[in-house]
Each structure stands twice: as structure tokens, then as C-alpha cells.
Design a protein around this nucleic acid. Structure first.
Length: 510
RNA sequence: GGCCCGUUCGUCUAGGGGUUAGGACACCAGAUUUUCAUUCUGGUAACAGGGGUUCGAUUCCCCUACGGGCUACCA
């Protein structure tokens, strides 16, 4: 089958060594968008070839994160098997050895018996002499491997059960070219590469071998991954070549890294703790340290807002649009528009995205989302009333969890009054004004925002007080807070009886 | 150290051989006819430096600087 008419198939291939951080989520997102855009498949493969680094719960965390974000793979661990199961490399273990042996047979790989100590010693030696400390075309001649040892010695060692690894035999001096969809041609001299281990002494392949074998057998057409993989891309190209798969080798795209908001460097777990914003999509309880790391979900972010925010970190459409639904992202996405430079993460903009999505939610939907908290607080109000309150509150908040502190006064008369405003605005004549206003309100027939506002102003003017001087005071009497939605909208919704009661209460307190 | 990648407002970015270098976040100022945390309007603010190529470069090339990544029997 030629490359051109193959169905697009991409994969997200994390290692279950801990919670997925937002950089990983963005990689998954771009893979998802690319797949959907081209009517292709998006699969999840778990790269657990390093059994020492296995963290319980990490795999499930990855699956739950993708689900929460709404970017579900259509194939893979946790999402149903396709034709290429299993999708966990530990379960694919039996298939890798044959490929390592194929590479040995074709002269592109070899057995190496060096111990950890011998390797350390070699590296030290090379560093002293100023050279690179790599296992390569030069240094391998001085090491214990099937290139330097007699054939029967090698055979004997293997039969005796001596530990060995399989290393790729990188050519002495050859130009290796990788075409990256984001960066163009990247050219590396093989003299700068080293004989990476492909197959470990514990019987597992390393990432490099497993990755190539799986991408080939799973018919992956595009490898979209983080920039930290760019240096090993030439190695991967060589592996495709030596395995005889170069004609179906996937195309590569290395994504720019997500950088910490201050200073420089890759965004890490520590930055979140230090700067007070989540680095993970979901809250994570570390099973070993018992440490808890906060998540976007638990902080009250909407998944679509979170995804929208991540999509714009390293990618931009041709226009000025910044708010995209998932469907719009799918339509607009292209690797050509992914930027090359790393993107500093901005927690402030993340909040702004959530605010935008909060506003986009209907009053009905927000009411429904808020109901559990209201019920828990013992609020007994009818749906229409709550919906109207929500309508006023949502213009002032960024998160649903702020609603109660922003608008509890719609359900409970304030217990406390904003101290700053009281100090600044309460004066000798204030009681008189409140009493006067209460009386005026009581006599009103209707009680709309328009009529109460007129009543308020005439009362103030009658007493020779500029309305602006007592407006915020009235707000505090009604809500206890110094700021909030349009005041007379609140007054209308609360209704005459309640407003009068609250004015009375203020007079009692003062 | 070596190799690789990168560099437009503080941040995310658009743009591209001739532009008033555009948008968004943040910030500041006015307005919403007299409250505020919303909204609206406006403003401050950028092509890392040096050489080329060219009539002309921020845009193309080279060098330097700076930043980042990789350099494990980790992914």
C-alpha cells in the first residue's frame, strides 16, 4: 500500500509513570484533532516497557483525563480494542525479540555484554580524553560485544545465560535526514549518534525499538509528539530503514514544548505548586508520597474551556478567532500552523477562557450545575427564581464555585456588611436615608428595577443627597457586598417584602 | 562540553521584501448620565544584535548572543 492513500492513524503513547501533565494533554489533543480532521483513527497506546517506573493508577488517570477532556481515542487501552490489540507494550512483550534478532541477522545490531561498571569506566575514560562519552563506532571496538568477541565466545555467553543487551549499529559516517512537518528537514551526522540499546537485559525492548515496531504494526501514519523526541528521530528513521519499513514510515511532527510562566524551562509539576495553578487536568493523589496535586477539573474549569486554552498554546488559526468549539478546532487544525517556539503557559489567560465559557453556558444549564451546592446549603427556592439569580451572577464570575460567595444573598439575607464600604459610606444621615427609602418602597405598587431605581433617586434628591453617595450603601444593605450585578436587578428579583426587611435589618444593626 | 531546535508587545500569537507591524490576556484611562467585580471605547507596549543579498529586510542568507531540548539497559 502506498503512503498517500493510507488511512490516517495517529497515536498518543504516554508512559504510565505518573499523572499526565497539561503538555501531554495538549499532545493528545493535537493528535485527536489531526485524526478527526482527516477522518482517521486516534489510538491510545501505553508505553510501559520500564517496569521499574510503573506507578499504580497512572494508566487509569490518563484514561480518565482524556475522557474528561472529551478527546477519546477510538481504539486502545481503556477505549476498546481495535484490530491491533493489545495496546500495552508490556502485553506485547513476546513480539519484540524477533525484530531485535532480525536486526542482528542483517548486521544492523549486535549483542553487548558490558556491565554497568564497564560502561561507567568507558565514559569516564572518554570524558578525560575530551571525546564524547558515547557507545559508538569508535568506542564499541574496545567493549565486550558480538562485534569484538569471537563468534563462539558470544554463543557461549548467551547459552550460559549471561546478561546482554542488543544495540543498534550506527554507521560510522552517514548523513541521516528527518523530514519534520513543523520544522522541515533536520539533518544529523551518524558520527554524532550513539549505539542505543534496543533490547534490554530484562527481556523488554527499550522505547526506541518498541515504538517503531508498534507504530509499524499498528499502521501509524503520523507521529505527533513533543520536541523532546526530536533528537532521537534520526535513530528512529534508521530503525525503519534497517527493518525494511522505510516506505511506510510515518511522517513526523515535533511539537514545541510548554514552558513555565516565569523564567525559562519546561513546565513541571513543581511550577504549579510554586505559582499556584494546576499543572494536571485532574487532581492526583500520589500513592507513594501521599502528595496531592490539584487539577483543572477540581478547580472548576470546564473541559471545553480547558481544551480551547490548550489548543491555542502552540497553534493558531489564520484569523483572529480565539474561542473554538471542539468541532471548530477539528475543522481549523493543521500542523502547518503549529508554531516552532516553545509557549509559556499563562494561568491568567486560562481563567479568561473559563470566564468566556461560563458566559456561554445557558442560565438553565448553570442552574442545574449549581443545584447540588444549593441543596447542600439548604436553599429552598423555586427554579425560576434561581435561574434569574444565576443570570445576574454569571456575569460577575469566572467559575461556578464562586457563585455562592457571589450570590448567596439571593437566598439568605446578609449577616455581615462589607466593612470597607460601611466605613467609607456610612455617615450620620445614612440611617435617615435608609428609613426614608424603606418607607418609599413600602408604598410602591409595582416593584421593577426601573421603578425602584426612580424611587431611589427621587428619595435621595428629595433629601438633598447625590444618589451616587448612597447607592453603594444601598447595595451593601441588600447584599452585604460592595460589588455585584446591576443593583436594581437584584432588588427587583428579591421583591418588595424582602428588600424592605433587609433595610429594616440594617436599621436595627446600626 | 557535544548535537539538535528555537528567538515579533510582559504573555499567547498574526503577518510577511515596501504594513500606521494586526488580534487576545494582563495593565492603564475614559464611558455606560451619579454604586461595583461586568460590558463598551481608547491607550501604553514588540520584529535579540551584527553582517550580507536587495532600490528596499522585521521578513531571505550567514555569524554572534540568548533560550530550550537531548546526551540512561527512562520514556
Amino acid at each position: 500500500m502506498s503512503m498517500e492513500n493510507r488511512k490516517v492513524r495517529v497515536r498518543f503513547a504516554p508512559s504510565p509513570t505518573g499523572p499526565l501533565h497539561i503538555g501531554g494533554v495538549r499532545t493528545a489533543l493535537y493528535n485527536y484533532l489531526f485524526a478527526k480532521k482527516h477522518g482517521g483513527d486516534f489510538l491510545l497506546r501505553i508505553e510501559d516497557t520500564d517496569q521499574d517506573r510503573f506507578v499504580p493508577g497512572a494508566e487509569n488517570y490518563i484514561i480518565e483525563s482524556l475522557k474528561w477532556c472529551g478527546i477519546c481515542p477510538n481504539e486502545g487501552v481503556g477505549f476498546g480494542d481495535g484490530h491491533h490489540a493489545p495496546y500495552r507494550q508490556s502485553e506485547r512483550k513476546p513480539m519484540y525479540r524477533a525484530y531485535a534478532e532480525q536486526l542482528i541477522a542483517s548486521g544492523n545490531a549486535y549483542y553487548a555484554f558490558d556491565t554497568k561498571e564497564e560502561l561507567d569506566e568507558m565514559r569516564k575514560r572518554m570524558e578525560v580524553s575530551g571525546g564524547t562519552h558515547a557507545y559508538n563506532a569508535i568506542t564499541r571496538q574496545t567493549m565486550k560485544n558480538s562485534l569484538t568477541l569471537p563468534e563462539d565466545d558470544v554463543k557461549q555467553r548467551i547459552e550460559a545465560g549471561q546478561a546482554y543487551v542488543v544495540r543498534i549499529k550506527i554507521p560510522r559516517n552517514e548523513e541521516v535526514r528527518v523530514l519534520d512537518l513543523i520544522r522541515g528537514w533536520v539533518i544529523v551526522q551518524s558520527s554524532q549518534m550513539d549505539d542505543k540499546v534496543l533490547f534490554k537485559s530484562d527481556g523488554m525492548p527499550t522505547y526506541h525499538l518498541a515504538n517503531i515496531v508498534d507504530d509499524y504494526t499498528m499502521q501509524i501514519t503520523h507521529v505527533i509528539r513533543g520536541e523532546e523526541w526530536l533528537p532521537s528521530a534520526p535513530l528512529h528513521v534508521l530503525l525503519y530503514r534497517y527493518l525494511g519499513w522505510e516506505n511506510v514510515m510515518p511522517q513526523f511532527a515535533h511539537l514545541p514544548l510548554l514552558l513555565k510562566p516565569d523564567g525559562n524551562g519546561k513546565l513541571s509539576k513543581r511550577d504549579g505548586d510554586r505559582l499556584g495553578f494546576p499543572v494536571f487536568p485532574l487532581e492526583w493523589n500520589d500513592p507513594a508520597t501521599k502528595e496531592v496535586s490539584s487539577g483543572y477539573r477540581e478547580r472548576g474549569y470546564f473541559p471545553d474551556a480547558f481544551i480551547n486554552m490548550l489548543a491555542l498554546l502552540g497553534w493558531h488559526s489564520s484569523g483572529n478567532q480565539e474561542l473554538f468549539t471542539l468541532e471548530e478546532l477539528v475543522n481549523e487544525f493543521s500542523l502547518e500552523r503549529v508554531s516552532k517556539a516553545g509557549a509559556k503557559f499563562d494561568p491568567e489567560k486560562a481563567k479568561w477562557f473559563n470566564q468566556q465559557y461560563l458566559r456561554k453556558r445557558s442560565d438553565e444549564e448553570l442552574t442545574e450545575l449549581w443545584m447540588p451546592e444549593l441543596t447542600e446549603k439548604g436553599v429552598k427556592a423555586d427554579q425560576t427564581y434561581i435561574r434569574k439569580a444565576v443570570h445576574l451572577i454569571k456575569e460577575k464570575g469566572n467559575f461556578l464555585h464562586e457563585f455562592w460567595s457571589l450570590g448567596s444573598y439571593f437566598f439568605i439575607a446578609p449577616e455581615k456588611y462589607d466593612a470597607d464600604v460601611m466605613k467609607k459610606r456610612w455617615s450620620e444621615g445614612s440611617s435617615k436615608f435608609i428609613a426614608e427609602l424603606k418607607g418609599a418602597f413600602e408604598t410602591m405598587e409595582g416593584f421593577s428595577s426601573a421603578t425602584t431605581e426612580v424611587q431611589f433617586k427621587t428619595t435621595a434628591e428629595k433629601m438633598g443627597i447625590p444618589p451616587g453617595q448612597v447607592m453603594q450603601l444601598l447595595r451593601v444593605c441588600i447584599s452585604g457586598l460592595g460589588g455585584g450585578p446591576a443593583l436594581f436587578g437584584i432588588i427587583e428579583l428579591l421583591g418588595k417584602d424582602e428588600v424592605v426587611r433587609r433595610l429594616e435589618k440594617m436599621l436595627d444593626v446600626k
